[in-house]
């Protein structure tokens, strides 16, 4: 079983993206859970969301304490939210930042793999303004899920709430996040 913890701020779409990841996992032939940190949601406040992914049905219903992957959607949370707490030493830290993995390592003090993606830059370049979709691309790359399969499921999931040029921009930003992470992940 793989456990993922997302760190974002209320309104940045961490919960939404965790649910879309679960759809991608199901499409990939796996079982999946996605749940937000339960509580009052306030725009801008730090929030967490979680995924569990497994080859058989997931029956555990407790919180996630030792994730395999921690994802930081909002870089400002890197030092205020301690996203590496409980993260498995052989796990992966995925950060939305313009910094390099080594620069992040010095600050975060995490011994495992670090993947950095400038998701804010991608979101601005593609014109979506949301870092969550490129970060989803990054996580999909880390998990080793097929890009075409993931894109198809993302198209369906986002297609329920947007269409046309807006949908395409999101798909482009997803792919950019995927490719950027893949490059760093393979190199690291």
């Amino acid at each position: 079983m793989i456990e993922i913890r997302w760190h974002g701020r209320g309104g940045q779409g961490a919960k939404t993206i965790s649910q879309i990841l679960a759809r991608i996992n199901l499409r990939h032939g796996q079982y999946a859970q996605a749940f937000p940190e339960f509580g009052p949601e306030r725009s801008g406040a730090p929030i967490r969301a979680y995924n569990r992914i497994a080859d058989k049905q997931i029956i555990i219903h407790s919180g996630v304490y030792n994730p395999d992957v921690a994802v930081v959607i909002d870089e400002s949370l890197l030092y205020s939210e301690n996203p590496t707490a409980g993260l498995k030493p052989d796990g992966v830290l995925v950060v939305n930042t313009a910094c390099s993995p080594e620069e992040i390592r010095q600050g975060a003090g995490f011994p495992g793999r670090i993947v950095t993606v400038d998701a804010d830059k991608i979101a601005n370049e593609k014109g979506t303004g949301f870092a969550n979709v490129p970060m989803l691309g990054a996580v999909v790359a880390v998990l080793g899920v097929d890009l075409a399969l993931a894109e198809d499921e993302l198209r369906q999931a986002l297609g329920e709430r947007m269409s046309g040029a807006v949908l395409q921009k999101n798909l482009d930003s997803f792919r950019a996040g995927y490719l950027a992470a893949k490059e760093v992940y393979v190199a690291g």
Binding site: S18, Q19, A22, L26, Y31, A32, Q33, A34, F35, P36, F38, Q57, I58, H61
Partner: peptide
């Protein structure tokens, strides 16, 4: 059904 634990968790 358990609040949040089941209501708000996406599952297969």
């Amino acid at each position: 059904l358990d609040g949040f634990t089941l209501t708000h968790t996406a599952d297969v």
